[in-house]
Amino acid sequence: MWSVLDSTRDDHVDGIISWFDYIASRPDDILEATWAHAKITLTVIVVATVFSVLLGVFVQRRPALRAFALSVSGIFLTIPSLALFALFIPIVGTGNEPAMYALFLYAILPILRNTVTGLDSVPPAVVESAKGMGMGTLRQLARIRLPLAWPIIMAGIRISTLITVGIAAIAVLVGGDGLGTYIQSGLTRLGLPNSLESVWTGTAFTVLLGLVLDAALAGFQRVTTSKGLRM
């Protein structure tokens, strides 16, 4: 990082200009890789959200199961990504698939944990009064508990999305696509023209994708959260 500072100012300007040139010369390719990256992420997040929220609702008031589910999903997050990707190769082969299975396992914990803490945070008095008015268990869940827990659940979904976007860049190492391809092609040609531009593209667009998805989810959270819970 510091060696960049050693170089002259012109070098920077040149570097930035050549990077813009690089991007301008292949917008379709980059967009395609970004879309592939987004597809991996969104598929994983949708599946993980449905799975984790349902699981969270199921285990929230069952202490033993809850501890078990949280521990196991915590273990997944502990295992280094390349290792977890690699462990799926003997089962599903190379490509996007091993990456997506692994990313799914990573995405569970933040959503699951926020689902149970979100449900925990619903004031017992509110549930009690819902029950007292004759709401059934399912109706309490759909009308009261999940809506009240929603901001916290959404926070979990957003964390999972950011993590998934970042880690999905490694999918290329197990034969997948996405923006990681730009990083890899830069690495293999390091020293040759456009190699660094390629790495920058892969890295920057990954972060950018993360920010865009996070902003989109923030908007979604706003729309789907009761006005009474917004401050």
Partner: peptide
Amino acid sequence: QALPAYGLLIL
């Protein structure tokens, strides 16, 4: 958190 470790290393 969205920063790809891979890209960071190569840079």
